[in-house]
Design a protein around this nucleic acid. Structure first.
Lengths: 224, 224, 224, 224
DNA sequence: TATGAATGAGCGTTCATTCAT
DNA sequence: AATGAATGAACGCTCATTCAT
């Protein structure tokens, strides 16, 4: 059962949903097709099971990273790093979660959207947290758009990174963060309009601090 | 012939390459399958024809916009705006050009990669233009990564925009531009060596520090 | 019209009836399909037209050769030589006349059978001519069988000769003639009752002997 | 599985490779197409399977018959009889093995050629066995041609016999044998240099005479 | 007379899915 | 709990053939 998922995951990730047949899978796992159907019902549900295993590993990782961050800036950084760390750990997981080959397949599309939505919410949450309460409502749409864009950037960068392998995952993450961070800061500043010079400077300082926090928090988790 | 492409384009965009059958297309166009084959040879080539029509409309638009810009900043802005203007004019074009449903289909994959590559080159060109000659070579990899990320952001934002339609295209474009612009400016400044010594050292230090921390953490994990 | 036939003939001969499409033919001739259909009605009839051109050239050649021969022996020789001369002059003609790729195609089969039948009749005529009037009726079936066998030998030898080209056509013809001539002479002699009693008995004996040997050997095998 | 082959064999034999569709076969067997594909992969391979069943039955029968023969004369006789015995046992087998309807179909052509080649080799072996060692090399080409002719005669006679059924199989076999035997004996004698000078000259003369007659007659025709 | 444009019918093949055991 | 055997439903593609002009 566990091995079925593992093998299926690997196959889907490498060759895409449509290109993998149930015969292939059965042969690769070393069981017969009816067994696959007994366990997973149909191909879609098998794929979704793979997705969920990956999603249920990725989302908490990011959620924890974000939740453990001291402020919005740190949350973004921690989230992106968590994302690339995850990829580094399981390159295939990514492909199953976000490969759009399956995006048009009925039941799968919903599930993919769901995961994307959860991620987007988390990103949006981070972004909104930068804003003072009273601005949030009116900025919600823009934040939604920015979340989508941010996720898209992360996905595309991840794809590039997986394909080229030219730089370390953390460097890729840093690249993305450092590119959007100033813009986001300006935006929240503008939207917030009330930040003191101190806060801005403090931001600079607190970035290093946050990194440290993130790192130490993760270390603790392992110990758990 | 033109109508065939139009209808096929619309179908592919809406339902994805794999989900559209030649029978569907023939029925939708109001002709018979053999006619489709007479004109386009096979399904792949029909899809590619749709893609090319879209690509050959999109690429020059962006290229012109970028070429006509006064400087790097304006180029980015003009390019992104051109991209969203294009989408506004033909929403489906986008999906056919970048829907990954077809990415695993032999001959199509190459063509998709080609268009993506051209776009990425254009973006990379804009980004590199910010750098003084002698820094370009060593920054090339990072620029490649940034191009991928930027395109990903634009694609994702476009997808969101097409799905929600909540804001005007130009506003979506502006959102993306204003988010990445400051970061890109900082980067090119830094890489261009025109920054104050302080800024360079500060950034440099904190970056190395973070990297170092993360690395040591990961090393420890391995030991576990 | 004449060129159509020529090109079609060449195509059919080289690639076989089924493998040649009307599109191929139209393209090879340099006209459009409807023209082909105007002239020949359909593919079958076009093929038959090719066959007839070849058959109407081959049959008279052989008929003349046979008719001009001094006696039965010479008739056989002249016929076989005429056959191979014909092949030497137009190698493709052969393939269209006797390629069995088309043998199962309705209307063609009949026409092929017709030509074969005419040839067989001519051969049978030669063979029967060796027999005195009153024996002909009772030998008719055997003569029919021999005709078929002889034609088959000639066809197969022709195929081999066309493929290998190892010896001149006349030598191939001579090979066939010299191999069957003695047997046919013996046969007509025997049937004609002009053979000495010794010859008849000798032949008879060896025949029974061979039969006996064969049968007993088979019986032994069964016991194994 | 066995029944599939049997039915397919019968269909192919009766209607030819091209005329039989997989749908026909499935319906005739009483199963569905996918099952056919499960077992045989594709149409070609199914046909080849039929051929092999026939070939693997025919070849050993002939090989054994030839091998068990006392001398060259007996080998020929035994071989031809084995061939017709085989046909008598399974009339359809023949058609599948040698029907040229399939000769142009890629993978099949090779297999057909293979079987023909094996048979031809056996025949050629019998014929060569008649010759003294030192003559074999130079006679090889003629023997090849004779093998082809002999096989062609047997095939054609078989076709005639299957179609007419006018005489017993063994009589058909005997007819062929008695027709070629004397000629082959003469040939091996001549090549073996054991013939009397008279016989050789007589043969030689009549041969040249025939050639001369033929040639001059043709020359006259041209002048007409 | 000749064609550009179009099609009806069917073929080989595949795949997710399901019984009977 | 697991399978060997089987299938319904399409799918991409081709070909001989025919109108409208």
């Amino acid at each position: 059962m566990e091995q079925m998922l593992t093998v299926a995951h690997e196959q889907f990730a490498r060759r895409g949903y449509a290109a993998v047949t149930m015969d292939d899978l059965a042969a690769a796992v070393g069981v017969t097709k009816p067994l696959l159907y007994n366990y997973f019902g149909n191909k879609e549900r098998l794929y979704i099971a793979c997705m969920e295993r990956a999603g249920d590993a990725l989302l908490p990782m990011i959620a924890d990273a974000v939740a453990g961050a001291a402020g919005p800036v740190e949350a973004l950084s921690a989230g992106v790093h968590a994302f690339f760390d995850f990829l580094e750990g399981d390159r295939a997981a990514w492909a199953v979660l976000f490969d759009e080959t399956s995006a048009h397949v009925g039941a799968v599309a919903g599930r993919v959207a769901e995961y994307r939505g959860l991620l987007a919410q988390m990103v949006a949450g981070s972004l909104l947290a930068r804003l003072p309460e009273r601005r949030r409502a009116q900025a919600r749409v823009e934040v939604e758009a920015l979340s989508a864009a941010l996720l898209g950037a992360a996905e595309a960068l991840a794809r590039w990174w997986l394909a080229s392998g030219a730089i370390p995952a953390s460097q890729a993450a840093e690249l993305l963060i450092s590119t959007v961070e100033p813009g986001l800061r300006l935006r929240s500043g503008r939207e917030g309009e009330h930040r003191s010079r101190d806060a801005r400077e403090g931001e600079h300082r607190s970035r290093e601090a946050r990194e440290g926090e993130r790192k130490s928090r993760k270390a603790k988790e392992k110990g758990t």
